[in-house]
């Protein structure tokens, strides 16, 4: 039985779709069987980021309305084995799908695949509830800014009420230079407020935009720091113990203090 994990954030534009695409790809690259589901009905773009836009024939809506089988609606990835995409309908609205229908799709996929990653839309309305309906676990994406953290906190509360557990965190777009200068909320500040397990930190990486535009997930380009971060996170998701490398945070003195107290 596989795991269904919803990837969500509350706030838009913080990297849910980017993370779903990269983690899905990374998991498949290390030998897992994976389906990534676009639950952003009406505003789909996971297919674009994956470079699979032209191959989408059927969507989850077609499965729900029994126009095709679930197997047939899954689009095979162009580059990695055992990676499938279930696209969202662009014509429909988020409340055209019901949570039970989403749950049903996830339950069926769990029997055949190791990981089912659901890319959630922004917001806390129906679309979010649909995305979370079939999930047993959640990954929260946030960027180190106050409004994204606030929304993440709201989402965590909602997920906890639905008994989704564990809920872990990816801190995206952390800029090492800004953190060093003390101009950015640090990893520890974020963890202090959200108080959930940290699954990983993805640095700000220009490569993300280029890879999005080419439709090739970043993890295919091993050189980039963002790709490395996503590969490490994927390995953690499979239960491997991979340390989270420390970015130099805070000021010189607190680093010295850390260093002393670690001895």
């Amino acid at each position: 039985m596989g795991k269904v994990i919803v990837i969500t954030s509350g706030k838009g534009g913080v990297g849910k779709t980017t993370s779903t695409a990269n983690l899905g790809t990374a998991l498949a690259m290390i030998g897992k069987t994976v389906v990534i589901i676009d639950a952003d009905v009406g505003l789909r773009n996971l297919d674009v980021v994956m470079g699979l836009e032209s191959r989408v024939v059927f969507t989850s809506m077609d499965v729900i309305e029994k126009r095709c089988d679930l197997d047939k609606a899954l689009v095979k990835d162009r580059r990695v084995e055992d990676l499938m995409l279930l696209a969202a309908s662009q014509r429909n609205r988020k409340d055209d799908i019901k949570p039970e229908q989403m749950f049903d799709i996830c339950e069926r996929l769990r029997e055949e695949y190791d990981f089912i990653l659901v890319d959630s839309p922004a917001g806390i309305e129906q679309g979010f509830h649909n995305a979370a309906a079939g999930a047993e676990e959640a990954i929260i994406i946030t960027t180190p800014d106050v409004s994204a953290i606030r929304d993440a906190d709201r989402i965590i509360g909602l997920l906890q009420n639905q008994n989704i557990d564990p809920i872990s965190l990816i801190l995206n777009r952390l800029s090492p230079t800004l953190v060093k200068k003390g101009n950015m909320i640090s990893k520890n500040d974020v963890l202090d407020i959200l108080n959930i397990d940290l699954l990983g930190v993805v640095p700000e990486d220009e490569g993300v935009i280029a890879s999005t535009n080419r439709g090739v997930p970043l993890v295919h380009n091993e050189q980039s720091p963002g790709a490395e971060a996503y590969m490490r996170i994927a390995r953690r998701m499979t239960g491997q113990r991979v340390p989270i490398p420390e970015m130099r945070e805070d000021n010189f003195f607190s680093n010295i203090l850390n260093w002393f107290s670690r001895k």
Partner: peptide, 20 residues
């Protein structure tokens, strides 16, 4: 967490956690 409210109109409240 954000968006959550807890209330007691018959006494005091002790929270084992944060209020975000």
């Amino acid at each position: 967490r954000s968006g959550q409210t807890t209330s007691s109109l018959t006494g005091s409240i002790i929270i084992y956690g944060d209020v975000n």
